[in-house]
Amino acid sequence: MTFLFYIFAAFALIGGIGVVVNKNPVSAAFSMVLSFLGLAALFIQLNAFLVGILQILVYAGAIMVLFLFIIMLMDVPEEERKRFPFFTFVGAGGVVAGFVALLVIVLKRAEIGTAKLVPLEKAEGVGTSDVHRIGELLFSQYWFPIQVVAILLLVATVGVVVLSKKELK
């Protein structure tokens, strides 16, 4: 288990680095997909089956495909390197380093992080998988956010259509 964790974590991280480093946008997109796969595996390791599948379906399947479409549609060129962007690297590096340092400090201090991953003792049966549970919650407690999200999607669709129109002469 631990071993698997490290492998998939590595996928996620290396994919992420790949996004940042690759000059070719298509390559960057593919690295992103790899990262998402790793993340999905981590989700499944955490007993979040539905969400893991959703991650692959929606994120990697729909969102990244969308990205690739746009990249190819707009014929985005490779990024040329201008003169060495010193300040950018220094600034970005500083911020990131600071963030990571703080992360480590916080994790070391907080006690909650030392909880161990214990297998779950839950009842087996028909209506007890996480899909069922999430479904129950969605349609009972969180029914209102569903409506809102539905409207959000509608709005997004309309927005995209409006934004993509060419100027009417």
Binding site: V95, G98, F99, L102, I105, V106
Partner: peptide
């Protein structure tokens, strides 16, 4: 975005 990042780091620093 850089200013954002600095602000976030500073905030966390302030909190801990």
């Amino acid at each position: 975005a850089f200013y954002f990042g600095i602000a976030v780091v500073a905030l966390i620093l302030f909190l801990i």
